[in-house]
Write a protein that binds this DNA or RNA. Sequence first.
DNA 1: ACGGTATTTCTAGTATATTCGAAATATCAG
DNA 2: CTGATATTTCGAATATACTAGAAATACCGT
Lengths: 120, 120
Amino acid sequence: MEIEEAVLALAALSQSTRLEAFRTLVRHEPDGLAAGDLARVLEVPPNTLSAHLSILTRAQLVTSERHSRSIIYRANLAEFRDVALFLLRDCCGGRPEVCAPVVESLQSCCSPKRKERTRG
Amino acid sequence: MEIEEAVLALAALSQSTRLEAFRTLVRHEPDGLAAGDLARVLEVPPNTLSAHLSILTRAQLVTSERHSRSIIYRANLAEFRDVALFLLRDCCGGRPEVCAPVVESLQSCCSPKRKERTRG
DNA sequence: ACGGTATTTCTAGTATATTCGAAATATCAG
DNA sequence: CTGATATTTCGAATATACTAGAAATACCGT
């Protein structure tokens, strides 16, 4: 991950409508959500949302696929994960103990079901 | 963490000079770096950097403390961690298995030494 | 082809961000 | 107090972002 790519992704997420849009799409994984439905959920005009979705798309944080008359948008979790790792690795590199609380918090929020997960 | 706070932090990090500034400060933890030294490292005029540092400060991502004639800036890793968790928890909430790769990657980057460091 | 639905592109007004020279503020040494 | 250093604030130019009405494009059923 280049810094340019990270800046693009962070800029895409640093606007409230877009951050809400991305978060909503994450919650709708893996089905995705049509542009119009997302506009209704977020209560913004469809063309305004379209501009925001185009910015999220350029940042590779969402993907889209036409499905009949609708265009279904989905969160690109792999890209999102890469951005998170890009940011967090700076902390880890300089101060390994800094990331430990993040790992701990993520473990408690990520493994609420105690599922057999290769190495819990 | 409210979404307003997250947007403020993401906006602060979504500009290349500021992202580089923050990353540089993270690498200089826990000593911090004087504003002028940081300006020299980043090769930007001191007053330009000052404007950026003020935005990072408003987002609570850095702290500053006067030390004689210099003002020492430090990364606020707790705030940064909270922003990371705010973002990642959306993934985890909707799809717990999404965060697993992040946790794994962080573990391999954060725990390379297995040091007994009780309080870092 | 035609009408209806879904979404995007065009366009423009308004707001916010970025940059940096110049001036102001704060600190220290003599 | 004066001079030197470190940083911030002011002010103004330039650039980019946000918003949404209107028009255009794409798709579907008949």
